[in-house]
Design a protein around this nucleic acid. Structure first.
Length: 271
DNA sequence: AGCGGAACCTGTCGGC
DNA sequence: TGCCGACAGGTTCCGC
């Protein structure tokens, strides 16, 4: 489901609703796979703390708690956070209920691949440490990419998905960005010119910003915190459009498999 | 070091 | 209708 724009949409939705709320109780219906703590310890550590901030790093959601502690969430494919003023019936896919004063924050996950972890020191978190640059930051520029891609024989699509280099791009936006700059997804990353890298930076930022403005992409089941859909799916140029005609040149959009994931491109526009 | 492939888990859809 | 394989927006681990 969620790539950077979708996670940013969720974070903004949560921020406006749960900032400065106290966690009064936690109920675990089904632990997430990598939850390293027993359920009761997980609940005990969180209960009584106040949510001071909700932020995003790559595709991770970070709840900053006081007294100091961090709850780090990753939605993977089907994770969802929903905030509800009323007590719903526990649905089949609901994993955790966070009681927040008068509100309920529900963590739901159909495929159970998402993760929730408690962390004491954000800087020392092994997964967060390994992440590359944020594509919407100043550090994401053509010079950085030139160092990254130097002598890289890997295909450009694969490098765009490498979170240790660029953090936050996923399968949908990788295809969309490559279409926007007219680069074939199987082109070797190391062969891109400095000019093409500049275009890659501009295009990535343009597309991610637009997707955030549109509240993300709802292909099948992505929902905002208020359960509304995003709208960026209406602006997709190639993703999941195989067999349809290119909006620029009318050539039929192709689908190929790279790293066991679908890539979509226009054979005419992307060389 | 860098890369490809399998695994994690559940649901849906299309073909036969 | 039922079964089966392919596929789904992500990450990690293992082996070469």
């Amino acid at each position: 489901m969620p790539e950077l724009p979708e996670v940013e949409t969720v974070v903004r939705g949560l921020r406006s609703k749960i900032t400065n709320k106290a966690i009064t109780d936690v109920t675990v219906f089904r632990s997430t796979p990598v939850q390293s703590l027993p359920d009761d310890q997980f609940c005990r550590l969180l209960t009584g703390r106040i949510i001071r901030k909700v932020t995003r790093r790559a595709k991770y959601l970070i709840f900053h708690l006081e007294p100091e502690l961090y709850l780090i969430g990753h939605l993977r494919m089907t994770g969802k956070f929903i905030v509800s003023p009323i007590l719903p019936k526990p649905g089949k896919y609901q994993r955790v209920w966070f009681h927040l004063d008068d509100l309920l924050m529900i963590y739901e996950d159909v495929r159970c691949l998402g993760t929730l972890e408690i962390c004491e020191n954000l800087e020392k978190h092994p997964k967060i440490q390994k992440l590359g640059v944020e594509p919407l930051s100043q550090d994401f520029n053509a010079t950085y990419l030139q160092q990254c891609f130097h002598k890289a024989h890997r295909e450009i699509k694969s490098v765009l998905l490498d979170q240790s280099k660029i953090a936050g791009i996923g399968n949908i936006y990788a295809s969309e960005i490559l279409f926007d700059i007219g680069i074939h997804p199987q082109k070797q990353a190391g062969l891109l010119t400095f000019g093409e890298l500049k275009n890659l930076v501009l295009s990535t930022q343009k597309i991610l910003r637009k997707a955030i403005r549109e509240n993300g992409t709802s292909i099948s089941d992505f929902r905002r915190v208020d359960d509304k859909t995003g709208a960026f799916q209406n602006f997709l140029q190639v993703y999941a459009r195989d067999g349809q005609s290119c909006r620029k040149c009318n050539t039929v959009i192709k689908r190929i498999v790279q790293q066991q994931r679908s890539s979509f491109y226009c054979p005419q526009c992307q060389q």
